[in-house]
């Protein structure tokens, strides 16, 4: 064995220390750059593209139009704002609802990377308890994306109860996603990066899962269920899973959820109301609280999807603070009477 000299040892040590210090220094520069100025669209964009020096090569998700103008989800084409499928098998309902919106290709370009964000809040119960998104709803979306030519379809959530691996399995989602060809990803802690929310009114900065922002397509698949503070957890509430410090969002919840939705923009929101949890949410655990509604709602407009889902519980869209805040910020529409809604009944 060859002995190293003291000089070699010290040199190696210094190099190692330097290597460790370097990223901290770089990160510091970066943070300073954004902190001194009021956050702007351009800055948010440059943050999102992740490469510190490169100019934003890909348009970030919150387009200026969405920030300033009224809802812009539907173009002049006669595609509906909302599609509702009822009384079918979960997979069929998803497929029909998305077909009604104009097909998955509208949302998922060839070769894109897709992240599907279901609600897998805990690892306590199987999907029957309606605390976690229906596995076949998630699987149908995975298949659709792959059929549309997506390069990679990842499914992830950040459970608050129990380890992610356990939650993925217990919910039944892992099995269905794998057989559909998707990938279950456990969200690494260090990928939650401090991110400014330029349009935020109450929440102007949050630690947000980096890859959620950098993925080409984000598909939001909440389950419709009871929640004591938000009343219901639906699409906008489901986005809470992409931030690290959830307690920060519990105050001024409605506005802060809307703030988050202004930055994290799912291309598609699919509300799973196959089974709905009516009480003791979000965790559930009693089948007595579960109602089989056999409904799937799909929309590119997260606010509209939530608005329609609220009516399944006998509530008005305005009863949900985050829907009100979302409309106020121009993130979407809640005027159901004026929206084109395509109803698909697979029953009978």
């Amino acid at each position: 064995m060859q002995a190293i000299t003291r000089r070699d040892f010290l040199r190696t040590l210094a190099l190692g220390a330097g290597a460790l210090a370097l990223p901290a220094g770089l990160a510091g520069c970066q943070a300073d750059g954004t902190a001194t100025l009021p956050p702007t669209q351009a800055q948010a964009a440059s943050w999102q593209t992740a490469a510190a020096s490169a100019a934003p090569s890909r348009t970030p998700q919150p387009s200026p139009e969405a920030e300033t103008s009224s809802p812009s989800t539907a173009t002049s084409a006669p595609a509906p704002h909302l599609a509702v499928a009822r009384n079918g098998e979960p997979q069929e309902m998803v497929r029909r609802a998305i077909a009604a919106l104009g097909g998955i290709a509208q949302f998922v370009p060839q070769n894109s990377t897709v992240i599907i964000k279901p609600n897998i809040c805990t690892g306590y119960h199987s999907y029957e308890y309606a605390a976690t998104t229906n596995p076949w709803v998630v699987a149908a979306l995975v298949s659709l994306c792959l059929e549309a030519g997506a390069r990679k379809v990842q499914v992830m959530d950040h459970p608050f109860g129990g380890p992610p691996a356990q939650a993925y399995v217990t919910s039944g989602i892992a099995e269905q996603v794998h057989s559909a060809g998707g990938e279950m990803v456990e969200m690494a802690r260090f990928k939650f990066l401090s991110t400014p929310i330029p349009a935020g009114r109450s929440l102007r900065q949050a630690e947000i899962y980096d890859e959620i922002l950098t993925a080409d397509v984000l598909i939001n698949v909440p389950i419709a269920k009871h929640h004591s503070l938000a009343r219901l957890t639906l699409g906008m509430k489901n986005l809470m899973g992409v931030i690290q410090d959830r307690s920060a969002i519990h105050q001024d919840l409605g506005q802060r959820l809307a703030d988050l939705s202004s930055l994290v923009r799912p291309a598609l929101t699919v509300v799973d109301a196959v089974r709905m949890l009516m009480a003791n949410g979000p965790t559930g655990g009693s089948l007595d609280d579960v109602v089989q509604a056999n409904t799937v709602i799909a929309s590119a407009d997260i606010v509209a999807a939530d608005s329609l889902a609220a009516t399944l519980f006998g509530l008005q869209p305005e009863d949900l603070s985050y829907v009100r805040a979302g409309v106020e910020m121009g993130l979407g529409r809640s005027d159901l009477a004026a929206l084109r809604i395509e109803e698909i009944d697979l029953g009978g």
Binding site: L20, P23, A24, L26, A27, Q30, A50, A51, A52, P163, P164, A165, E186, A188, R189, F190, K191, L193, D210
Partner: peptide, 28 residues
Amino acid sequence: TRLYQVPALRQAVTALDQALRPALLPVD
């Protein structure tokens, strides 16, 4: 956590993390 702050290193850190977790270390 530190290295991931550097955008250029993100892919490498992700690869490293996938090698380490959950095989050797817990995700949380």
